[in-house]
Write a protein that binds this DNA or RNA. Sequence first.
RNA 1: GGUUCCGUAGCUCAGUUGGAUAGAGCAACAGCCUUCUAAGCUGUGGGUCGAGCGUUCGAGUCGCUCCGGAAUCACCA
Length: 595
Amino acid sequence: MENLLRTGIREAVRSLYGKDASDDQLQIQKTRKEFEGDLTLVAFPLASLSQRSPEKTAGEIGEYLAAHLDAVSGYNVIKGFLNVTIAPAEWARTLQEISGVTRYGFMVPGPEAETVVIEYSSPNTNKPLHLGHIRNNLLGFSLSRICEAAGNNVIRTNIVNDRGIHICKSMVAWQKFANGATPATTGKKGDHFVGDYYVLFEKQLREEAEKLIAAGATPEEARDNAPLMQEARRMLVKWEAGDPDTVSLWQMMNSWVYEGFDVTYRALGVEFDKIYYESDTYKVGKEIVLRSLGEGHLVRRDDGSVWIDLTADKLDQKLLLRSDGTAVYMTQDLGTAVIRYNDYHFNRHIYVVGNEQNYHFQVLALTLLRMGYDWAGGLHHFSYGMVELPEGKMKSREGKVVDADDLIAEMTETATVMSQELGKLGGYNETEKRNICRQIGLGALKYYILKVDPRKNMTFNPAESIDFNGNTGPFIQYTYARIRSVMKKAGETGVKAANETVGGVIPNLKEVSVIKLLNDFPALVREAATGMSPALIANYCYELAREFNQFYHDFTILGESDEMLRSFRLRLSEMTGKVLESGLWLLGIEAPERM
RNA sequence: GGUUCCGUAGCUCAGUUGGAUAGAGCAACAGCCUUCUAAGCUGUGGGUCGAGCGUUCGAGUCGCUCCGGAAUCACCA
């Protein structure tokens, strides 16, 4: 519709003023609610072409359009704005057109489609997932679906930080204090089980350190010299040396954690195509660094440590290998990137990682480029903001973290209570009830997190997140369920949306509003992919649901006696349902048939 | 201190490449179920878009300065 108008205006300008308007002189936008019309041409930029005032220009173009374009049924000029009214019948034809499109809004990857690797989640194996990971997982997974919908080949990937001092701490504590307990003997979820020993380690360490401080040590010395800490370090050295007992303990405890993570991932509904482990990739990283050193891209200091000098790019010098030859964080990320490129030859690689690591990813991409890996130009850091609580930042040291599993359980529980109170669960068996409440609880949680611009820090207010009214996931799910209910009833009574008649209706204002939104969907998906913003999809779904609910409230669908109109409204509802379902799908939110 | 990001209604957030009188939800108050699902719909009140200067026909949006907050600048990850 917009393109139609665009060419029309271009013709008008040529015919009226004998000049060609450039793309950025043709500013078309949606007409604001308080004015009459559908699309608005901003005439200010054209005034220089027409040599007339913006008002006069707008008026002349409006007159031309009304005379030459069938789709244009009227216009008005306010200041320098030309508000064009599209004939309502034109919108009916639009509905007919888009409802014939298979997988509306989703592009099929063509031969020239890009391969996009998306890394998200990236947990440490010493403790369970928390609220921060939830934002990461939801953003990453949603983004992966959005990129797919925009016509890319997407590889979902995860990097598990399975080695290092943190897991050694849990291992030491388990060895000393567990008496052979396992998740199986205690009935505890594996990641929580291992996390408990990490916490226990820190607690015992604190006690040891306090004794040393009392004996005159500085806090730093105390932590460093405490027997437990030294034991953890010995453990790490043994691990790196490949000591069989240590390695098998490490494998056992990590396997417990993975079992736990799997449960959480399944509950969240996120998936991966390929999982990488840092215990594999750090070695490749070291090789790459050493090779690059040989090629003269890096510098070795007297103490043997290896650095890259990025001062020419206004960054600092960055350590790539310690003086003892061991790898740092950057080393393994270099390795992981190279392995992934060899695996997939991606065009783009998106890292979904918090904004605290902005600097790290700048350095990562630059370093790879310096080393001669040109594909590193396709590395993007999808940097999202922190999640804070109403009382401030989450602090794992003080136990002020929101556990992922707890949160999911609470949301589901709230949904169950709420559904019961509203009497929504009649006619369901237990399995169905549980499933529907799970869908709603998770829908609320996911939407609450995804509706916020990813770049911004956000406040997670527990009381607000379980609200199911207004701008929430359940509101959108509810709208979808309502539509399904209508469709079901239509099927039962044999009413059908006859496509050939849909385009012949003159829709009312509310109906036009809905169609306009439906018409926006494909462009919005592309925009969300380019801008890497699930929030765009979320807010669109809300707007569409709200607009549809108004229509639903004001007009009857199945009760309409005019057959053509009833058919049209049914098709409008069906299409809205499809788009809502697609939008929710892109957010990783399930759309319940009934609620 | 350097770099980056953020600041919009009491609270949580939208606000397209600069466009008209800055929008939702929550909370508060007042209405609407004999009807396709009231997890809905309608209405009322609520703003110095952190402050100032500049660019522009036009600035919440762009530039500069300042104020406030966050992150980062590790032989941590």
